[in-house]
Design a protein around this nucleic acid. Sequence first.
DNA 1: TACTAATTCTAATGCGAGTTAGAATCTAAC
DNA 2: GTTAGATTCTAACTCGCATTAGAATTAGTA
Lengths: 203, 203
Amino acid sequence: MNAKVNKTKPNLKKDKTREVLLDKAAQMFSRQGYKSTSLKEIAAAAGMKAGSLYYHFASKEALMVEVLDRSIQFISDRVAEEIKKLDDEYSFEAGLKAFIRGHLTAILTHPDYTTTTIRNNGQLPTSVQASAHAKREHYEQQWRRLMKQGREQGVIRADLDEHLLRLMVLGSLNWSSVWYKPCGKSIDSLVEQYTSVFLNGCR
Amino acid sequence: MNAKVNKTKPNLKKDKTREVLLDKAAQMFSRQGYKSTSLKEIAAAAGMKAGSLYYHFASKEALMVEVLDRSIQFISDRVAEEIKKLDDEYSFEAGLKAFIRGHLTAILTHPDYTTTTIRNNGQLPTSVQASAHAKREHYEQQWRRLMKQGREQGVIRADLDEHLLRLMVLGSLNWSSVWYKPCGKSIDSLVEQYTSVFLNGCR
DNA sequence: TACTAATTCTAATGCGAGTTAGAATCTAAC
DNA sequence: GTTAGATTCTAACTCGCATTAGAATTAGTA
């Protein structure tokens, strides 16, 4: 009857299948889209029946919300990790490269989660969309700060709109999830070219 | 009973509502996605009932196929138009700008059709997807030729992968349909910045 | 006005979806 | 081995969807 014991042990098993469920859901949502994916398919991929999902998630929407949350979290964490490797007073050039490396690595190594975000942007129930918007906004705020730094350091030339520049970079990065196949070029070589083209492009 | 008379006049009316139906369908498909859009909604937007759609289109899939066809056609035509304005022996710089202007104009002035292509990429019935793939392939071939020209003219420096460069440009262009609002910057100013950044970026 | 073809509507069918309640099974502690 | 709780299954229910056949309506022609 010890409360501590009741909380630690049983949660492990439950969390494990939650994890599997989320992974499979992300996989199918990213490939087929939210509406086209049935709970029956997701459950089957995790080795159970559709009704059993409701022991772990309140609804299909709730499941999607968590997938989207994790998706943005993956990217955000990965970028933060790259930034931490830099000095405290890093240059715009180094910062941009870190952002690109983090964003691209997250997108291409967790394609299921991140592609779900990108693909289903705009075609979700509004409640789901609102929940995802806040977190994405926070992440994009970091990109805005980076661009401001580039402007202040004089690396971004005066005639360029830095907001549009941010959208250009994010656009071409995000689009990679549409065509990227792990068998092709290495992520590192992609990072090099993205960084090089955009750095040369903006000064 | 003259066959000619029977063919010319009545088609006008029929084609007119077909047009409306396609427009409304493109609108809803682009906003909500293929699966999330019901024929009832499309029909209602065109002022009729769901069943009546089947007088004009064989199925929901057939309707989507035509929307996708038009979508790619819009872009392809618009780009061809810009190319035609150039000299026969145009430079890579001029060609790139024409491609960017054509692609961007098509995407942003017919957002319904083109966004449908982009958004629903990958979450459609395979038969629909196969049909769209051929036409898109032909259009991308033109981009490949442009890149090859840039390489041969020495504008694209040696260390850059021209295939990846093409994907970068197309990615950032296509992504604009996600965020662009007609009330913001003019399309022309976008064209200037895209061209400038990528031209400086690749040499 | 009457006839004919074109166009739309009505009503029904069948299917698969998300969801739910309660029964069945599994797990672990005593 | 028994018991209690956690986890999954079964079987239903409701709903909206795409699709269809035939009736109803419209519009043009003679």
